[in-house]
Every structure is written in structure tokens, then in C-alpha cells.
Design a protein around this nucleic acid. Structure first.
Lengths: 240, 240
DNA sequence: TGCCAAAATATTGTATACAATCGGCCGGAC
DNA sequence: GTCCGGCCGATTGTATACAATATTTTGGCA
């Protein structure tokens, strides 16, 4: 069974003679390559593919009902994000994050989340405060309901909102990438740490709203370190 | 005149009947896509293409003597590195770093270089010390000769060696990317600041070798901020 | 003259075809 | 039995062809 659903069930009717008929036709199709990226990213996050597993272009193309060209381009993009590895002439494999790489990633993330929280505190405004409080409230409700799935989504949302509050687009983009690379690991154990996670989120928000740069930085950094320590303990131990 | 040289002057002789003749033939050709990436990166750094300029696939393909396929894949890679922008159906353009984006990039770079210097100081060893001193010495010689071109190369080398000394591969990769994005700006004015640059380099190395984490971090961060301030003053001013 | 629509052109997006290389499998020599 | 060399299937790399969309040009009209 294909791990990803085909989004082009029928052929693009090449027989139809409507060359350049109506423009904009029905809905602006985003390029297939982009859609393949999204589909693969989703599949990777959901754990459909295991680390180290080979991603054969032809198979992916069939599963999605497209040719190999968009698949290849999608694979390059995912490789740039660090989600897969591509070896020349040997194809793509799902990145198997070593415990060393995990530790390195967390170390960088901790620092950058700290910087971002500091910036957010420096530039705090009523608007960002409201956005942060909103996500925080939703997180609280989801936790009360033990809704782990929503909680994961909200966790990502929280970090996105916080990144926006920092006001540094370059920083936000890098943090997003680093986060996606470790998503699978953190998702695994986030259930166990849900309570602590959202308490830490709340504390960070408070510091940001208070404009306390140093505290915001400290808490955000520690937040990543805390979660990271648990991840590393779970998967890496001394050496993987 | 093409901005990049063709590395395939003659066709791949498709008429020749040698199907799978000798294996490995003459030298292991790296994939064309990779070579196109290298060629384009070089061209972008050398300033052959101006910010905002369109990069038409067909033209690039002709100039390099390859088909559009490797060119397209190369463009995706460069887009992921932030060197170019790709808009669907509208092609690729050379990234025009706004003054805001420049400031953001420098802010992140400053923090990460600081983190890396701290790590390098923590993990300092005779081997890394020797490597750092070596680049430092070469930089001194190049500066004595007023060899601006070599100096630029050595500057990149210095930061690479320092990144290695930090021992965090993820961090090193991110810093490398950030550095490439701002290369053109820094190259412009590095001549004026050559003396200060290498004095700062020397100070950082000393702190690293001494294992003085806090000082190494401070100096490395300040190094980026100092150079960055000059860049921003030159290009951005209050608003670009 | 200036502006709008529609054809003509340029360029990107996708599919298919073929070439090149990798990895495993088989057979023979020692 | 094991190791080496070469065939064979599987898979990636590249080129070409065509389809779809963006951009420019052109022509008519107010």
C-alpha cells in the first residue's frame, strides 16, 4: 500500500484539444514539485518511512501519479532541509539522525530559541501578546482533553507564533527547519512531557510580555534543553 | 558573452555505439546538477549576476552545454541556500538581500559565531590550535602583501577552520550558509577593514586556545557585529 | 495619444525515452 | 570452499518533446 496518497487520480487528459483555452482554468494548480514536497514531508513526519529507508524515485512517482521529474526536484528540496540524504547515483534515503547530530541540532536550536525569545521580549507588543496568549489558551484546553494530536499541532503553532514575535525572518526560517528535522523524535515523547512543556511555554510568554529579555532568553533556551535532554536520553544514550 | 564557462564543449557523442563500454571511463564525472551548482555559485559570488536579475533556465543550459534538467535541479538547491528566489511559473532571480534581511542575517550569524567560538574554546586541542594559528599566519602574510584576493579566500578558510574547531557539524553548516548569503556584501568592504578583521581573528584564536569560553564568545559575536555594522551602514542605512 | 484586448512569443512545468552506473547473482578457477 | 570477473536487472542521470502559463507585442478603438 502506498505510503502517500495519489493526488492525481486521472491523467491530465492530454487528448483533449483545449490548448491554452480558458486562462487560469479551474483553480491555480501549484506546481507538482511543490505538492510532492508537501506530501513527502507529511509522510516523513507521520512516520510512514523509517530512517534509513530508501526512497526510490520511480516508486514515489507511481504512488503519486506523477512523473519522476517533480519527484526528483522535491527530493532535492527535502535534502536541503535535511530530511533526507541524497548520494550520487545511489538515490535518496530518509535521514537517520545520529545521536551526535541530534545533540548538535538541539544545541543550536536552544541558542536560537533563546535569541528569538530575547528579541520577542525586546519588541513585545499588544498584538503579539494576544497571539501568544491565544495559543497558550488553546494548548491548555487541549491538554485538559488529553488531546495529544492537537497538542502536537499547537506546539508547532506556538513556536511559529513566538518566532514571528521575534521579528527576525531569517531566524524564524532556520528555527523552523531545525524543528522539522527533529519533529519525529520530539513527537514521540511529547506526550510524557506535555504538562511541563506548556508550563514552560507559559513562563516564556510571561517573560516576553513583561519585556524581560534576559529571562525570556534563559527560559526559551532551557525549554529546548529540557526537552532535548529527554530525547537524547531516550534515543542516544552514550552512543547510538 | 556567457557569464559562466561551458564545461562540456562537445556533445556527449550520442552517435557512438559504445553502450556501457569501459566502466568508469575517464574519471568519475560528478553529476551535472552538482557541477552546475558549483558553477552558478561561483558566478554569483563573483558578481557576474546582479541582484534581481532573472536566471532563465534555457539560457543557463545553453551556456553550460547541458540540458535544462540539471539546471533546474541546481536552481532548487541554490534557492534552498537562499542565494536565489524561485517563484512558480516565473522562474529564478538572484536574491536581492534587503537591508532588513541583511540585518537579520547578521544578527543570527553573530549569535551562532559566538556559540561556535564558545564550543571551540571548550573543546580546544593542540590540533585545532595549530590549524587556527596556521590560517592566522597565512592571513598575516597575505595582508603584508596587500593581497586582497587571497585575503578573502583566507577569511572564508578561517571561519571554516573555526567552525570545525567548534565540533558541531549542524552549526558549521548553518554558519556556512549564512556566510555565503552575505558574501558579496562583505567582500565589497573587507578591503577597508582587513587590518581590524585579522586583529579580531587573532584575538578570537587566543581566547579559544586559552579555553576562555566567555571571551571567545564575546569576541566572535562582536567580530560579526563590527563587520556587519559597516556593511549595513554602507548599503542599508535607515531603509533601503 | 493613450488604453485595452487578443494574438504572438518566451519561459516554465511535466512526461517520456534513453544512457550510464550500481548492486547482486552466477560461474569458473584455484 | 572461497574468491574473482563478468553478465543482468534495478535505479539514477540526462536529454528531448510537448503542454501550460506568463510576458510582450500588436492592433484597434475611444
Amino acid at each position: 500500500m502506498p505510503a502517500v496518497a495519489s493526488f492525481r487520480s486521472e491523467r491530465a487528459t492530454p487528448a483533449t484539444g483545449l490548448t491554452r483555452s480558458r486562462r487560469t482554468a479551474a483553480g491555480t494548480h501549484s506546481p507538482l514539485g511543490q505538492r510532492v514536497v508537501d506530501a513527502l514531508r507529511k509522510a516523513l513526519f507521520s512516520g510512514s518511512y523509517k530512517p534509513g529507508e530508501r526512497l526510490v524515485e520511480d516508486r514515489l512517482a507511481s504512488e503519486m501519479g506523477v512523473s519522476r521529474v517533480p519527484v526528483r526536484e522535491a527530493l532535492r528540496v527535502l535534502a536541503a532541509e535535511g530530511l533526507i540524504d541524497i548520494a550520487p547515483r545511489r538515490g535518496a534515503t530518509v535521514t537517520a539522525l545520529s545521536s551526535v547530530a541530534a545533540r548538535d541540532t538541539i544545541e543550536v536550536r536552544a541558542t536560537l530559541e533563546g535569541l528569538n525569545a530575547r528579541l520577542a521580549a525586546r519588541r513585545h507588543s499588544p498584538a503579539t501578546a494576544a497571539a501568544l496568549e491565544s495559543v497558550l489558551a488553546m494548548g491548555g484546553r487541549a491538554m485538559a482533553k488529553r488531546d495529544a494530536r492537537t497538542l502536537n499541532t499547537l506546539n508547532a503553532r506556538f513556536h511559529d507564533v513566538l518566532a514571528n514575535a521575534g521579528g527576525n525572518a531569517v531566524l524564524a526560517e532556520i528555527m523552523r527547519t531545525l524543528r522539522t528535522r527533529t519533529t519525529s523524535f520530539f513527537a514521540e515523547m511529547s506526550r510524557k512531557r506535555a504538562k511541563e512543556t506548556w508550563e514552560e511555554h507559559a513562563a516564556i510568554v510571561r517573560a516576553v510580555i513583561d519585556g524581560d529579555e534576559a529571562l525570556a532568553e534563559l527560559l526559551a533556551t532551557r525549554h529546548v534543553v529540557n526537552a532535548g535532554a529527554q530525547v537524547i536520553a531516550a534515543i542516544g544514550g552514550p552512543a547510538q
